[in-house]
Computed example of a mutant assay.
Amino acid sequence: MQTGELTISNRHDDLDLDMVYAFLSQETAWAQGMPRDTFERAVAGSLCFGGYVDGRQIAFARVITDEATFAYLCDVFVLPAYRGNGYASALMKHIFASPALASLRRIVLVTTDAHHVYAPHGFTALANPERYMELHRPDVYKTA
């Protein structure tokens, strides 16, 4: 799909895995220090989307899903030099319109500071946060 100058693809062969891995493992708090083999297993088991400008990947999003009822959106980023151009919004519109995700009952995500990116696409705070639980291991990559 082409949106203005942004091309979006969910083909694994189109992904610049070296760039995505470097950005996630070095520039994000949530994947800091992730081993490469962990990253590769995550990508292999997920529906991944890349955003491209002039043939260069500048955005990424990963969706963990059963493609029937539920999905977890994660690892979303636009490279800093390309932010502020509406690319994240275009990527979200494309993702949520994709046939594998358009009819899901629930899509969740976790964000520290990008609520403004997701709210226009229908995301809200949890209606019943007391129902959600987590097993969080923030140091797991340090022992891997």
Score class of each variant (00 low, 15 high):
Arg106Ala: 10
Val110Asp: 13
Val108Asp: 12
Asp113His: 10
Asn85His: 15
Val78Pro: 02
Ala42Asp: 08
His115Trp: 14
Val110Met: 15
Gly55Lys: 06
Val63Arg: 01
Ala59Tyr: 00
Gln32Ala: 13
Trp30Thr: 06
Asp37Ser: 14
Phe70Met: 14
Glu40Ile: 07
Trp30Leu: 02
Phe70Thr: 11
Ala102Gly: 02
Val43Pro: 02
Cys48Ser: 14
Ile64Tyr: 12
Ala42Gln: 09
Asp66Glu: 09
Ala102Asp: 12
Ala59Thr: 05
Thr65Trp: 02
Met92Pro: 00
Leu79Ile: 07
Glu67Gly: 08
Cys48Thr: 04
Val108Cys: 15
Leu91Asn: 04
Thr65Tyr: 05
His94Gly: 09
Leu91Phe: 02
Ala97Glu: 12
Pro99Ala: 09
Val108Gln: 12
Leu73Cys: 07
Thr111Gly: 02
Leu104Lys: 01
Ala68Tyr: 10
Cys74Phe: 05
Ala44Asn: 11
Gly33Gln: 04
Tyr72Pro: 00
Val43Trp: 06
Val63Glu: 03
Val76Lys: 04
Asp37Gly: 08
Gly33Ser: 03
Ser89Cys: 08
Ala100Pro: 05
Tyr72Glu: 08
Pro35Ala: 10
Lys93Ile: 13
Tyr87Cys: 06
His94Arg: 12
Phe96Met: 15
Asp66Tyr: 06
Leu79Ala: 12
Leu47Ser: 04
Arg106Pro: 04
Leu79Met: 09
His116Met: 12
Phe77Arg: 05
Lys93Phe: 10
Val76Asp: 06
Gly51Ile: 03
Phe60His: 06
Ala42Pro: 05
Ala90His: 06
His115Cys: 11
Ile95Thr: 01
Pro35Gly: 05
His115Ser: 10
Thr69Asp: 14
Ala90Leu: 08
Thr65Lys: 05
Pro99Arg: 03
Ala68Cys: 14
Gln57Arg: 03
Pro80Leu: 05
Asp37Glu: 15
Thr65Ile: 04
Ser98Thr: 11
Cys74Ala: 14
Phe70Cys: 10
Cys48Trp: 08
Thr38Lys: 14
Phe96Ile: 05
Thr65Glu: 03
Glu67Pro: 06
Tyr87Gly: 01
Gly84Leu: 06
Gly51Pro: 01
Arg56Asn: 12
Ala68Leu: 13
Gly45Trp: 11
Ala31Glu: 03
Thr65Phe: 03
His94Met: 08
Lys93Gln: 15
Gly51Glu: 01
Ala59Lys: 00
Thr111Trp: 07
Val108Trp: 04
Leu109Gly: 04
Ala61Met: 07
Trp30His: 11
Arg41Met: 15
Ala61Gly: 04
Tyr82Glu: 14
Met34Val: 11
Ala97Ser: 14
Ala114Arg: 10
Met92Lys: 07
Phe60Ala: 05
